[in-house]
Write a protein that binds this DNA or RNA. Structure first.
Length: 240
DNA sequence: GCGACAG
DNA sequence: ATCTTGTCGC
């Protein structure tokens, strides 16, 4: 596992990502998946887009669910300072510390973890899901509501349709490398961008995203984590 | 220099 | 991510 410093500059973070990405393992999930966890973050005291942040703290929630019934088995919540700014491509340096801590507070390690964001569908192959998976040595997949990089055709309009996501020629390293898929999780709605994080394959990412679906756009683990973290944010004072 | 740009 | 109510469509 990595064990690096999180308090570094954006320049150092980018260099670090390139090195860490070499250790990410894209391979089929092994062993039965009995539990799946979802994680999400919210920012305290963020205020309107035009206002300056009042409180620089992030709240992260991890939810553990039974992979068959999708029943909630446990939830964990953490609140901690977040110093790193949001920079496209460096999201993990802003959220991973909180996410890792929340997952660590769950009563048991999940067989699969779903993160809000990219896995290896990233300019340097180290999106949030890949970084967290590497750090915790867990199987992870990234489920994002929009694309960070790469090119793809529009998937069919029906639930279950998906197209390949390949890196742009501009992304250093692999030109046209297959890194994920754009999946229609619900007929007629905007598709999700999924990619493996660590110790999972692209097929696993697509399969579990659809398998955890409940007729709504977001898969249940992610959806539940989002609802829980939103409630937690309001309870702690969204605008101190 | 000009676009693109997870949450 | 964040602010915010009602409203249009299946």
């Amino acid at each position: 596992m990595p064990d690096h410093d999180w308090d570094i500059s954006p320049q150092e973070a980018m260099a670090l990502q390139a090195r860490l990405a070499e250790r990410v393992r894209i391979e089929p999930l092994r062993g039965p998946v009995r539990t799946v966890a979802g994680v999400d973050c919210a920012y305290l005291g963020a205020g309107p887009p035009w206002a300056q942040p009042t409180d620089r703290r992030v709240v992260a929630v991890a939810v553990l669910l039974d992979a068959d019934s999708m029943a909630t088995l446990a939830t964990a919540c953490v609140v901690r300072p977040s110093a790193f700014p949001y920079v496209p491509g460096l999201l993990s340096f802003r959220e991973a510390p909180a996410v890792i801590e929340a997952v660590g507070k769950l009563p048991e390690r999940p067989d699969l973890l779903m993160c809000d964001g990219q896995g290896i569908a990233h300019p340097r192959r180290l999106g949030l899901a890949a970084h967290v998976g590497l750090w915790c040595d867990l199987s992870t997949i990234g489920v994002a509501k929009s694309r960070l990089c790469g090119r793809h055709r529009a998937p069919g309009r029906r639930r279950g349709c998906r197209t390949q996501l390949r890196l742009d020629d501009a992304d250093a390293g692999a030109r046209g490398q297959l890194v994920g898929a754009v999946v229609r999780t619900r007929t007629g709605v905007k598709p999700l961008v999924v990619s493996p994080g660590h110790r999972a394959s692209i097929d696993d990412a697509v399969r579990w995203t659809l398998r955890c679906g409940r007729g709504v756009r977001l898969p249940e683990p992610t959806r539940r984590a989002h609802h829980h973290v939103s409630r937690e944010k309001r309870r702690r004072g969204g605008q101190p």
